[in-house]
Nucleic acid binder design. Structure first.
Lengths: 231, 231
DNA sequence: GGAATAGTGTCTCTAAGACAGTATCTA
DNA sequence: TAGATACTGTCTTAGAGACACTATTCC
């Protein structure tokens, strides 16, 4: 409305969203990358991202969800804002903003057929355009840090999970072994899981494990504990 | 550069920064507000904020620092990104982004003379435009949460501080009493303070307290502990 | 000396980790 | 039955909180 009357006409800002989509493969965090179709850096693997469409997207969160859906086919993962990167020099096209979100998803839910999705281990990232490497590093830091006292890693698991499976996931994310008894005490304290009555994970040559599912209250919201899960 | 050839011309996004400047007064967190000079909401107290000036600001952080300097005279506080608010409906002028930063400052360093700065207790905020109330609430949450395991509250103190003074600050921020012995153990563990040799806070009718200063390594960076400062 | 708060030594108590024992499956 | 891992009971240990005692100032 009164915008132009208030401030001088500065060159416009390029407004984009990017998504750090993380999954667990071979006990290690991996990030989903896409070969860029457009310049700059066409052909290089990069984070899924795109312009904010002001007539389509109500918010930047919705823009990120749309980008994720359109570029990877993934519909409603745990999607949370990470940080906003900005500046004159980060994009050769000009002064730009990227509102970055991160998402977690079980490997099985990734459509990895032949739609161009690449998986890169976060410990050994390929050359990436813009400041995407730093962005992935920050996302991993955030996920590790939040996992220390929350239910965040359950979003890396499928609907059904056993405690031994979940412990392996936590250990992979945190990068350190966890005491079994303490781990179970903490998961109990978090209260996000409920046992599926009578359902046991059989098939292995040992006592079967109880199968749990995420309580519906925590499908979209984290559960927290005061003191960390490990130490 | 090739921007327009890649995407259709969407209506531009209004790109702004806002700053939640917090201080401690009467043992309670207060936020600094300014009466808006321009429409919309001219005359209403609001967070200091303004447009990103793409020819002047190298990054959004610099834009926030500039806004703070120009509107309040404060030069280099602890200034960190909080979150980015965005959407079609939050600003009557159109689709907007606000990259929000928060800053902490000792009350004595606030130029509260007659330059229009208002102080509002965060527990009883006045009517504020846009989504500023929610923004302040999030900033307070963030500060409380970070204060549980970091040196963040020292930025609310002046250069010289005693441990009893600092404990009062922590208790005000966290909103709960802290065990004195544990508190001192934790501050020692944080390792951010060094005693000023021979300098004691005298003048009161009791044993004087040792005066400390912030080690230079922590002037701009937080110190962290694994387990919380209280419980 | 009395009052007040600073600073410290030490005991208690809570909760995390270690360890080992029992449970229950496959081969 | 042997081997493997799930689950659980309980002891040990680390660290947070409680309490009390000494230190040092002003009045």
């Amino acid at each position: 409305m009164a915008q132009k009357s208030v401030e001088p006409d500065y060159p416009p800002v390029i407004c984009t969203v990017d998504v750090v989509l993380l999954t667990l493969k071979d006990q290690a965090l991996h990030v989903v990358l896409l070969k860029r179709k457009n310049e700059p850096f066409a052909g290089t693997p990069a984070l899924p991202g795109g312009y904010i469409h002001t007539q389509e997207d109500k918010t930047a969160w919705e823009a990120a969800a749309r980008v994720l859906r359109d570029k990877t086919g993934i519909v409603s993962p745990y999607l949370e804002q990470l940080a906003t990167y900005s500046g004159a020099d980060r994009d050769p096209r000009g002064w730009s903003i990227s509102i970055v979100y991160y998402a977690l998803i079980p490997l099985e839910m990734l459509p990895l057929d032949n739609n161009g999705l690449l998986l890169a281990p976060v410990s050994k990232l390929p050359k990436m355009p813009f400041d995407h490497k730093g962005i992935v590093d920050l996302a991993v830091l955030r996920v590790r840090s939040k996992s220390q006292y929350s239910s965040l890693p359950v979003y890396l698991c499928g609907e059904r999970v056993t405690l031994p499976q979940l412990q392996v996931v936590y250990e992979a994310v945190l990068g350190e072994p966890i005491n079994k008894v303490s781990f179970r005490r903490k998961i109990d304290e978090l209260g996000m899981l409920e046992p599926i009555e009578g359902e046991l994970e059989t098939g292995a040559a040992h006592r079967p494990a109880q199968v749990y599912r995420l309580r519906s209250a925590y499908k979209r919201e984290l559960s927290l504990v005061q003191r960390g899960i490990n130490s």
